[in-house]
Every structure is written in structure tokens, then in C-alpha cells.
Design a protein around this nucleic acid. Structure first.
Lengths: 232, 232, 232, 232
DNA sequence: CATGAATGAGGATTCATTCAT
DNA sequence: TATGAATGAATCCTCATTCAT
């Protein structure tokens, strides 16, 4: 069963934003709107994910940016505008990534296992995204609701999954009464928890959920649980 | 298989604080420190869970209280002190509740199913608690870490579960390589997600995760997934 | 020339308030109004002298007291009332002390030297008093002005000094045009500075004005300066 | 013997900040950071000197300013930050002034007399500075200790004095065993007292220490005392 | 496009003082 | 007398946002 290595799911946030000439904080005038925007979003993504929407500070975001506070307002209008842009970009990224995995040609069981492990690894490697989702839920999803249909577009994941499920049922290796959305929710839940509740769980159960050993064991347990769930 | 009804797991927060004579906002001098404290915690629990630590406002909490802002500082010293008290109380409550379920005398499979359904229902009925856990994780668990060992004490749930797992393995109805903590994590993850990620998931997948129908179906799917997971 | 040892001018504040049975903070009910009052004043004297009138906190004073905050208001009515009582008591004490020195029977030069050294040592040993005077001057003397004539009564010091000056002039060892009040002011100024400006002076000139060596040298310099000043 | 007139030592605080067009409280947006900063410091100097660090109110300072409370925090971060800036500026000013007096070319006795009278007059004319020093000592010099070495730099006064003393000893008009720092302390003490303890002393001795007559007489007495002190 | 200065509205916290018992 | 609980009025400080250049 092919494994999707962590390298494959390398941290997405900020990927593509490698700026060779950008020495630490020289705040040189870029005059490249796209880069400026991208830089702000990159910084803001991290800040919002670390401190939440209310906890993040525009001043601090501006400071870690290659540009100034004024530009944040110029491009995003308000703190919430910036937050929405961050949210949108994070969701856009995951959609893009999920679409690149080619699982269509693998046998259903293998495809499902790979999908689960990929999801697990992706979430592990993109804690910023996971935490943004938490933040958004704390805010009752009011900002994601404001994004256009396209922007909040149904994740590619569910389509992939739907395909796998169908092929699995058709070939008789999955049970017939599977609901793809329900299955997706279970997979999400199992993967999400590891990142989202890491701190409280680690504290209460005196384990380090972020350690490689725990992580590896957990990944297999999750995959195992999902595979057992779909078996006829 | 006995079902634990929602009634059984009625919302805990505020239980015991039913004060017959307390008309809305009469703000009379109580001179009953316990009641004052409890009232503040009750209100604050809700505010923090709704808006997060940074998003909640002491002024607003005070306003919804039978007492004044000054009293919050009198009893809890600071916003963070209040938050810690809220966290502690929420955890204390769940520990108490979990300990009351009598699953020891039921056959392992039935006990496990009941435990899963209870967990699912408790979390559903106590969204404040779930959201507080999210909030605390957004804050990197720094406040729960400050509570004493006793206060962050290992949940009763894990002990219950350990017992069930042992009995299940002994009687041959569970597979032998089960890890109670791992199992607990899976159950938590599956139950938690339904409350925690309700908003983003509902928005993206155009379903109402809070609806009774969805909820009931999901509860069974979760129980099913867990039972399949432990099967030999 | 007789020296008044530091022992002779032992710290006044709190003298007489030695309470044998008062173990650290047991807050036993005293039911002895005078002792309660004295205890409050003792504590308050120190607090006001350390932090000033605005800087001192009633809560903190109460806490260091054998009694409670309520008693402070019971006895002194307000923070300012307490401060005035503290001021009054401090001035009363110095008057009492100054009157006990018997310098009348000593030759003028020796008497003056002894008086200067005593003043120097008394101030050194009673920094609380000195600092209270500073505090009162920061507040434009408005509280001492509220004390009755008797309470702000001309210090005994000036009478002693007047006597010495007269005898010195009469016996020809002092010059004739000495003004006792002016002389008193000079003596006060020279002694006061050592305690009052200790911190800024020590910091700027990198010396430790509170050290025994500095102190001893300074005492002699002051005495020398005064004696040279009165010489014919 | 040349006298340094009061005019020469005109109140320093605020010198240079004479702004012809600044009508009382027009609060127009200046966009001149230096002026804004200077204006805040000028006002704060007076407030802190009048009421002490704890007694001064940021609100009140802001109100007397051409700008707003927010700007105080913009430039000085906190009440203590503002206080430190005030302290630093006051010390900077006196250093500057002291350095401008040309006493090097005058005969030692005359130079010393002039130095003493100048010190006396400067302190009299700059009560704000004197009172700030008192305030700082009430706070145990903790803020001056936080200024950099340069900022708390040894006063120019001591260098001047050292030169005079050396010349006086060399020319035989001063006694040989003079210690410049000790002499400086005596001069400071004598001058300081007149301003610092004005209120309590005036109240107790029923004189108006601030009156021109008292002041003039005292200036001469102080000069006299110092000159007698240095005589061989 | 870009920046430092400026701001009003709010937000956490503190304090002297009073009340109920 | 004595005490813990309670309070209103400040008081310090912060934040998202806007203006002048």
C-alpha cells in the first residue's frame, strides 16, 4: 500500500512565497501588488491561526509584514476583510492540493487508505489551516458564509471520496450502505482532532501528541478505523 | 441496547444554579459569595465559549451577571483568572458526570456502545464545554496547564473505557491489541467534531449538522464505527 | 566632644509597639482600641513613607495590620485622615525626643556639635519621618497646615538651638550675627539631604550614601561646616 | 563679586517651546512629532512635579496638552515611560545649563560664590526639577537607575566645582583637605532644602520661605556658609 | 503605492469607601 | 467593635482605523 510521505504534503501555507532576495525585514519598497498582498496574507494567516480573530493584532501583523499597516487597509479594507481573505486563500489552497492527488486509478481500498493518510498528514503539516477552521467555528462560521459559493466550494476531497466509495461498492470490497459525506466527516474528525485538540489532550493525558512516534501510531490507527468501517 | 437519552445528559452548565426567586436582573445585594461566584462563572462560561478568551468582554459578562464588574475582579483577579476558573469548573463538571454512569455491569459491547452514545450526547448537549476546549487549544493549552494536577485530572472516561476494553478483550468480543487511550481519542474525535466544526462543515456541505435528523444518524454512524473498530 | 551614638537615637517609629505575643499575622481580636490605633499608625507610617500619599494603598495597609480595613475607616475616617494622623504622630515623636537631650549644661561649641550630630543620626535612623516630610512637601504642606497649632508646634530643636546660640554669643565663641532659625535651617538642610536625596545622589555619583563609611564621613563634614559657620 | 541674576537662570522648563501661534488649546493636528513630544513632556513635567508619579493623572496631563491621551501612549508607552522621559529631559536640561557658566577664569573664591548663588537661584527658579528629584527619591531612584549612563551622566556641576577647588587649593585660598563631592553635596543640600522643604518649614516656623526677602537673605547665608567651609 | 502620525471608542483594572451581619 | 462582601467612579491602557504628506 503506497504511503504518501510527509514530503509530499509539505506545509502549504507560504509555499510559493519563497522570496530569495528577502533578507530579514528590510522592508524594501516592492511595488509588486501581488507580492505585497501575498506577503500580508501569509503573515496574517499565521497570526490569525495562532491567536484567533479577536486575539490577532493588526499592528503586529503589519510589523511582521514587508509592508505597512496602511497597505493592509488598502488591500483588505478591515481586519475582518483581511481575515476573510486569509480564510479564502487557505480553503483555496487545500482544494488545489486535494485535486492533485491521483487516486482514481488505484484499487478502492488502497486509494481510501492513501486518501486517509494524506488527509492526516496534510492536516498535521498545515496546522495553520486547522486552527483557522477552529477559529472560524468559534465565530459561528459567519465569515465563511460570506464567501461566494465558488470560494467555499465543496472540497475536492468529497468528490475523490465519492469516486472511491462508488468503486469500492461496485467491486464489492466496501459495504453498500456507505454515505460519502458521513465517511468524509469521520475521516475529517479523526484527522482534525490530532491537530486541533493537541494541547488539552496532551496536557490531560500526559502524552506528546505532536511527537513523531505518537503521530505515526495514530495515523495507522485512523487508517485502520476507516478501513474497518467500510468493510462489508 | 439501552440508549442514553438526551434528557439524561441534560445541559450541565448552570445545573444546580436554579434560583427560583431570581427575576431577570434584580441586582440586589446578595452577600452570598458562593452564589455570586457561581453566577459569574455561569455567565462567563457562556461568554467565553461563544466569543473566545480575547473576544469576550468583561463588561458584557458583568452586565449579564447578577452582580457588577468589580465583583469579577474581587473574586477572580483578572480576565484570565476568570477564564481559568471557568475552565476548571467545566472540567470538574464533566468528570463528575462521567463518573455517574454505571456501565460496569453491562456486557462490553453494550457498555461501549452506551459509552459512545453518552459521550456523543453529552458533547452535543454541552456545546459550551466543547467550545471552551477549542478556545483553550487556540491558546495552546496554556491555561489548563496552569491548573493543578487534580484540577486537570485525567477524565473518568478513560477509566471507564479501560474497564470496558479489558472486559471485552477477556470475553473475546474485542480484539486484543486495543489501546484504551487511542480508542478514547477516536471516540472523542468523532464526537467532538460534530459540535466543534458544525458551522464550517454545515456551510460547506450544505447540511444542518445541528438538526435532530443529522444528529441521530451521525450518532449511530459513530457508534457503528467504534464497534467495528474493536471487533476481533 | 561627646558623641551621641546611634544607639541613643534608635529608630523611633514603632518603638513602644513591641508586641510580644503578636506572632506573625495571626490577626487575633485585640479589643484594645489604643493598640489597634497604634498598630494601624505604625503600619501606615511605613507605607506612606515608602510610597507617598497617592502611592500607598489602603488595602495593603490593612493587610499588614493586625486588624481590618474597616477599622481604618472607623478610626481615621478616610485615607487622608489616616495620613494626617501619621503625620501628627511622627512630628509628636520628634518633639518628644528632641526635648530629652540635655545640652543646656554643656559648653556651647560642644552642645552645638552634639546637637548637629544628634540631628544627623536621628534623621538617618528615622528615614520614615524624613520621607513623610518629603511627601508632605510634595503635597504642598496642605495636611500639616490642617493640624492644630499645638500639633504642628514649633520643634523643640529650635529652642534648644536658640539657647545654645545665645550662650555661644555671650561667651564669645560664636559670632554675634547668628540667626537661630537660619542656623536651624542649615543644619536641617545638611542632615535632611543625606536621607532624602540618597537614591538619586547615589546613582548619579556612584557612591553608596547609605554605607556606614560615607555616613560617618558625612556626619563629621556636616558638623565641621556648622561649627565653622558659627565661629566669630 | 558678580551676582548671577535670576534673569540669567530663568525657568528652564519649557524654554524653547515658546510657540507664538499656539493659542490656548487649539488641538489642531500638528504632524510635528517633535513638537508634540515636547509639548507632552512640558505638561507632564509640571504635573509629575506637582503631584508626584502616583498622584499625577494621565487624563489630566492629556487635557493640558495640545494633543490627546492616545498620543502619550504612542510616544511614551506608559505612565512610567512618560515619567522617565520627563526625568531624563529635566536632567539633560540642567546639565546643559551648568555647562554654560564660565567660572574658569574667575578667582576661586569669587567663582565658588558665584557657583553657589547660581545653584541656589537655578533651583529656586526650577522648582519643577527639584520636586521631580524628590519624587524620584520617594520612588527609591528606580527610574533614574533605568536611564542610560549618559542620561544620568554626572552633572557638569561637579566638574566645575572640582576645577574651582583645585585652583583654590593651589592658590592657597582654600584648605587642602576639601573633597569636591562632599562639598557639592553640602551646596546641593543647602540649596535644595529651600525649595524642597518650603511648605513644611514655612508652616512650622511661620515664615514665608518663598518670599523675596527670605530668599535673598538665605542665599547669602548659604554662600557665606560655603565660603567659610572652604577657608583654610 | 507608501508611511508615520494621529485618534475615538472602548476595554481591563484599581481604588477608596460603604454595607450587611 | 469587627469583618467579608460589595460598589461606583475613576484610571491606565489598547485597538482598529484614518489622515496628511
Amino acid at each position: 500500500m503506497a504511503r504518501v510521505s510527509l514530503k509530499t504534503v509539505a506545509k502549504e501555507a507560504g509555499a510559493g512565497s519563497v522570496r530569495p532576495a528577502a533578507k530579514a525585514k528590510e522592508k524594501s519598497r516592492t511595488n509588486d501588488p501581488d507580492r505585497t498582498r501575498a506577503n500580508i496574507i501569509e503573515v496574517a494567516t499565521h497570526e490569525f491561526s495562532e491567536k484567533g480573530l479577536s486575539g490577532a493584532r493588526i499592528d503586529e501583523i503589519a510589523e511582521r509584514t514587508r509592508t505597512s499597516k496602511r497597505m493592509i487597509y488598502y488591500y483588505f479594507e478591515s481586519k475582518e476583510g483581511l481575515y476573510r481573505a486569509v480564510l479564502e486563500e487557505s480553503y483555496r489552497r487545500i482544494r488545489t492540493i486535494e485535486a492533485t492527488l491521483d487516486l482514481e486509478n488505484k484499487p478502492p481500498l488502497e486509494a481510501l487508505a492513501q486518501h486517509v493518510r494524506f488527509t492526516f498528514d496534510y492536516q498535521l503539516a498545515n496546522t495553520d489551516f486547522i486552527r483557522l477552521v477552529m477559529v472560524e467555528n468559534i465565530h459561528h462560521g459567519e465569515h465563511i458564509a460570506q464567501l461566494s459559493q465558488t470560494q467555499q466550494a465543496n472540497m475536492a476531497a468529497i468528490d475523490t471520496l465519492r469516486g472511491i466509495v462508488q468503486r469500492g461498492i461496485d467491486s464489492g470490497v466496501f459495504r453498500k450502505d456507505l454515505n460519502p459525506i458521513d465517511l468524509h466527516m469521520s475521516i475529517s474528525a479523526l484527522c482534525f482532532f490530532n491537530v486541533a485538540n493537541r494541547y488539552t489532550f496532551s496536557t490531560i493525558f500526559k502524552v506528546d501528541m505532536a511527537s513523531p512516534a505518537e503521530t505515526a501510531a495514530r495515523r495507522e490507527s485512523v487508517a485502520d478505523m476507516v478501513l474497518r468501517f467500510v468493510a462489508p
